[in-house]
Each structure stands twice: as structure tokens, then as C-alpha cells.
Design a protein around this nucleic acid. Structure first.
Lengths: 339, 339
DNA sequence: TCCAACAATGTAATCGATTACATTTAGTGT
DNA sequence: ACACTAAATGTAATCGATTACATTGTTGGA
């Protein structure tokens, strides 16, 4: 494996000049440059990246922390990040936290040791104080995370307004008893989606019936179980808003177990617009998050930080969209009733 | 940021000793070791990994090449790889090839430049000669890939026997007209699944009706379209084997479009046992691949290579399983008809 | 023609951990 | 107590690219 000094010798110049040809070509005369490039070509020289990274204290690598890579929502964001990263000469280190707090802490070590230049955290669980602390020392960006007091750049959608929109849609279809199964309430994201739901009911003069609000945790299972339980009572909703598509599917399957037709007997709106939302039966009305774009944007922001550019805003809310399909009952034989 | 020489000074020893305490503690007297550890603690010293990696020409990082991270099948394998890697002090670099051959070639550069210690390729598209060439120079392992002439360790399931099993299951349920929509035929994996299907029909004395065999490419869309087309003909199967669950769902939806009931009018068996297989309606009978385990195993094999251990076998076929649910008609009211 | 000013190139120190080799210390057997 | 081996520690070179600073070359203007 030839090194820079070999190239220098062959080209009859110093290593400094070779280095300049590589990293700052304008500082070298054309003739010299050609000699060097020719030597590089002849020897098939590749710079030793480990040496470069060591010397420059940079890695051209970023860390992406994912709660669970198997979740398509995260996988899609990671896809966006990776695309934008590799387009800009950065590599992506993937780390699964399995939602364990200690693994999030562990990643800080990685930054401290300069093993990566920056980090993007998807749905971090660390508290804001800790996150701010990290952010003051290292370039980080958050994705799918909202902050109470935003000091760190983050990319998200407006979870309150999107949930409002979803709930409103059900209300405008004539539903008075709109239920909601929440995500885990220690997550601000879940609280926001809950807030949007409540706001919509309030704005339309509907009382919030706490019996129709259950706590879940985004999963199919929690949607199914909570809905089974709710339908076991004699007090039952005619529509439900779920903060994830998986949950919505669980809810629909629970309804089917109870011989209810969806959307006729129970209208359902989900969240995320995962790939299967359109394949399911009935196809899911849902809020589409621009996941891939969110990933790209997160990386763009991180790149700015890495290049020392200032980021004016911290909140980066991308537009979401209510996608109307069959699970809400707004479409009859391909025709839309409203919206 | 304190460095090793700072620790050495504080502990009153040489850097060599500090280095030994860190990497080869048995070579240092207990007393000295304690002094050094105390100094490390006092200074909150963290070794500079970039320096270490440079000096040792190793990165403790492996590259994982994925055709498409958004595909849950790959995401799950990556999950297994990541788990096993981080357990062993390795980090995982993720690279999406987007099924582009040039990106697979690009990854070889990464290896050449010693930016990673090894690589795991998921469903590589490179030809075997090229793969062998890479493998002779660098530690690599393949996952979800079968090889015609196996010289490189790879982890897979036996795609022929699993497809045989799936098809046989349909035949034993009484079906004579069993169709198949294939994956892309430039992939050995697809050809193997096709082979298993044909073998089963042959073994049970059924002729292969080429009108019932269509070419697709694993996707929902291709399943839907091919099935729509097939059902448009007057020559129609009573059962279909699909080489992916996504495709199976597409097939079922196409059947529904044609007012066919599944499994009564058309029995369907899928492949992969993705998360949604059990949530779909009807729930999918499918071949379960141990994806997470396949990821783990791939990493285990790579670790062996990285540690210079010899790997006796190249073929590592993990057990798959036929999961019987509702889409094949073998279960009636919770009871199994056979198997 | 000569010198100032700048461009181009070279010299050598540097990044921080590792490790071959040298030296010192401890331990063993007679 | 002595010689000798083994254990413990130290010294200093090394990995390869980068870059501050030094030196040489070039150009334009008087």
C-alpha cells in the first residue's frame, strides 16, 4: 500500500506538495499538480484515511441513534439521513438503543472520544437538560422529537395540529363519540397528539369522555388490547383516533373481533402512513409524515452545524398531510364526502 | 482532553505502562496498575480512538451494505447484526445501495482504504467472481444470499426446501392448480424459490402450468398487478405461492378486487413472516425466516474472520418454518386440517 | 537591472497511542 | 550469597498525513 511519501518521491516533490494537491489544489502550479496526479495514478495511491482522520481530528462519520431499527418509521428516517449523508461525504454509524436510556448515555462517550463528528437522535428519551448539555459540546440534531424549550435543532411535524386535523376530520363526518388510544405519556410526542385530539373536541363543543381515552404505546398489541377492552364495556365510541398506524390496525382488528364493521360501525384514523396503510383492509386514513424528508432535513441541519454555519431556527416542522382512505368512512365508492 | 502522557506523568510511570494497563493488564504489577487506574480516573482520561485506530490499522467498525433499509426484512437482519456487533465492541456503518451496482463497487474502496475492518453484504448483486475476489482480500460475509459455488461464508435459509414446503402444503390441501408469482429471475434466491415450487408440483405428479407462473419482483405492486392480470384470464389458479409477504398481500387484494374470497376461492402462502403477516386479514400463512438470527449469525461469522479463526463451513443455512395462519385455508375455526 | 511582494515549494514538527527493544527489578535454585 | 532467569518497566521509534514556518522562485514596477 503506497503512501504519500512514495508519491512524493516518484513525482520528485515533497509530501507537503502532494498533500496540497489533494486538499488544496489551487495552491499548486499546474505543472507540478500534473506530475503529482500522474504519480498518484501510477502507484494507485489511496490516502490512508485513518491517518488523515487522526491528524485532522475528524471522522466524516455521524452517529444515528435509533430506538428500534425494525420499526419502519425509523428505518425510513434513517434512509433519508443516509442518503443526504453519503451525498456529502459522510458515513452513517447506526446504533440501536432498544429504548434503553443507558445506551443513549453511552453514545455520548462516542462523541467525547471523537469517534464521530456529530449525532442525530431519533426520538431520544433523555431529558431536555441532558440533551442541552450534550448539544452545547457537540453537534447534534434531533428527529421526530419536539422540545418544550427548544434550544437544539430538531425536525418534526406539528403533532398537535396534525392530530387536531385527524380528530376534526372524524368530527366533521358526524361523530360525537370519538375515542383515542394514546402513546406512552412520558413522551412529549404522545402528549402533543393527545393535546391535538382534545383541542379538536373542545373546539367543536364536544365533551371529552375519559372512558373513551385509553393509554397504549404505539404498538399493534396495545391498540388491539385497549380496543378489545373498550368494546367490552357498554360505553363505546363510533370513531377512534390512533397515534400510529400499527395501533389503528390493532383497533380495527379488535373491532372485527367484536363483529363491528369498519368504517360503518367504527371509523378509524391512524398516524404515520406506513407502507401497509394502503394495503390494509380497509385502507387506512392516516396522517402522513414526510419521514424520508425528515431524515434528509436532519442531516442537512447537522451538516450546517458541522460546517460551523449558524442555524437560525431550532424548530423545523415539516408539513404533514391527512390521507383519506377507507377506514374513516369519508370515501364511499371512491367518492369523498367532504374535505 | 488529557492524553496518555498526562496519565503517565500523574501516575509516575511511562506511557508504555499506561498503554499496557489498558490493553494488556496482566503484564503490569497490581500496585502499578492501581496507580495508573487512579490517575486515569482522576483525569477522566479517555483514549483517543482515532490515534489508536491509526496506529493499529483497525477501526472496530464493520460495513453493512443494504439494498434498501426501508424494507423490514433487511432492517431486521441489520438489527441482528448491530446487536451482535455492539456486544463485541464493533460499530456498524450502514450503507444503502439502493440496488445500484456501482454502490456495491464503491464499498470495496472503503475496505481498501481500511476504513472498516470487514463487511456484511445483504443480498449482493455483484457476480460471484467479483465477490470471491473481494473475499480473498478482505473479511466479508454474505447474508440472505446463496451462492452457486460457495467459497465465501454466507447465511441464508434453504430457499428450495422452504418453497417446496410451502407449495407442498397447498397441494396437500387438495389444490391442483397452484400458481406462483416469482421474484426477479436474475436473483438466485428467486430462482431457488421457483425451483422449490416446481419440484413440489413435480413430486406430487402435477404438471406445471406456465400460464399460472408469472414474473414479479417481490413488491406489493408486482403481486397485485400480476394477479389482477392472471385473474383476468379464464384460466385461474385455486392457490398461489408468493415469494414474499408483500406480494402475497398484493395477490390477496387483487383476489378481493375480483370478488374472490381468500382462502375459500384462492389460497395464498407468502414468505418472510413480516410483522404485518399476522395483522393482515386474512392473516398470512407464510415461511418464517429467522431474520434477526441470520443477522446475528452473519456477524458471528465475520467476527471469526476478523479474529483470524478459520470457518469450516461456508454455507450456513438456518432453519425456516412454515407458519400456518388463515390465508391458506388449512385452519378452520382455529382448527388445523393437516400438518 | 534590481528589489519588493507574492507565489510555490520544501523542511520538519506534530497528532497520541502502540510496541520493539533496552534496561531495571524481583525471584529462584544451589 | 551469587548467578541466572523471568517479570516489570522504560525509552524511543513508529504509524502517515497535515501544516506552521522556512526557503526558494517568479513577477512587475521603478
Amino acid at each position: 500500500m503506497p503512501k504519500m511519501s512514495d508519491v512524493a518521491r516518484l513525482a520528485g516533490v515533497s509530501t507537503a506538495t502532494v498533500s496540497r494537491v489533494l486538499r488544496n489544489p489551487d495552491a499548486v502550479k499546474t505543472g507540478t499538480k500534473e506530475k503529482v496526479l500522474e504519480a498518484i495514478h501510477q502507484l494507485n495511491y489511496q490516502p490512508n484515511m485513518l491517518a488523515r482522520h487522526f491528524r485532522r481530528t475528524e471522522t466524516k462519520t455521524i452517529l444515528v441513534l435509533v430506538p428500534n431499527i425494525i420499526n419502519t418509521v425509523f428505518a425510513e428516517i434513517v434512509g433519508g439521513i443516509e442518503e443526504q449523508a453519503s451525498k456529502n461525504g459522510y458515513r452513517v454509524l447506526l446504533r440501536n438503543t432498544a429504548r434503553k436510556l443507558e445506551r443513549e448515555y453511552g453514545s455520548i462517550e462516542h462523541l467525547k472520544q471523537r469517534q464521530v463528528d456529530g449525532m442525530i437522535m431519533l426520538s431520544p428519551q433523555l431529558d431536555e437538560a441532558t440533551l442541552n448539555e450534550i448539544s452545547s459540546q457537540f453537534p447534534i440534531v434531533l428527529a421526530t422529537a419536539n422540545l418544550e424549550t427548544p434550544k437544539i435543532p430538531f425536525v418534526s411535524i406539528d403533532n398537535v395540529s396534525s392530530s387536531y386535523k385527524a380528530t376534526e376530520h372524524l368530527i366533521r363526518l358526524g361523530h360525537k363519540k370519538v375515542g383515542h388510544i394514546t402513546g406512552p405519556m412520558d413522551s412529549l410526542l404522545s402528549r402533543h397528539r393527545n393535546e391535538g385530539y382534545r383541542k379538536a373536541l373542545g373546539d367543536y363543543g364536544l365533551d371529552i369522555d375519559e372512558q373513551l381515552v385509553r393509554r397504549g404505546h404505539f404498538s399493534y398489541e396495545s391498540g388491539f388490547e385497549q380496543m378489545m377492552d373498550m368494546l367490552g364495556q357498554n360505553h363505546v365510541p363510533t370513531a377512534v383516533f390512533a397515534p400510529s398506524d400499527e395501533m389503528a390496525i390493532g383497533i380495527i382488528n379488535a373491532a372485527k373481533e367484536h363483529q363491528l364493521r369498519v368504517p360503518e360501525d367504527l371509523a378509524v384514523v391512524g398516524f404515520d402512513n406506513i407502507r401497509f396503510a394502503s394495503m390494509f383492509n380497509p385502507s387506512l386514513t392516516t396522517i402522513a409524515q414526510p419521514l424520508f424528508k425528515m431524515g434528509q432535513r436532519s442531516m442537512e441541519l447537522l451538516l450546517k452545524k458541522l460546517n460551523g454555519e449558524s442555524i437560525s431556527q431550532t424548530e423545523h416542522l415539516l408539513p404533514d398531510e391527512l390521507i383519506i382512505r377507507d377506514s374513516c368512512g369519508a370515501r364511499k365508492k371512491g367518492k369523498l364526502l367532504h374535505n
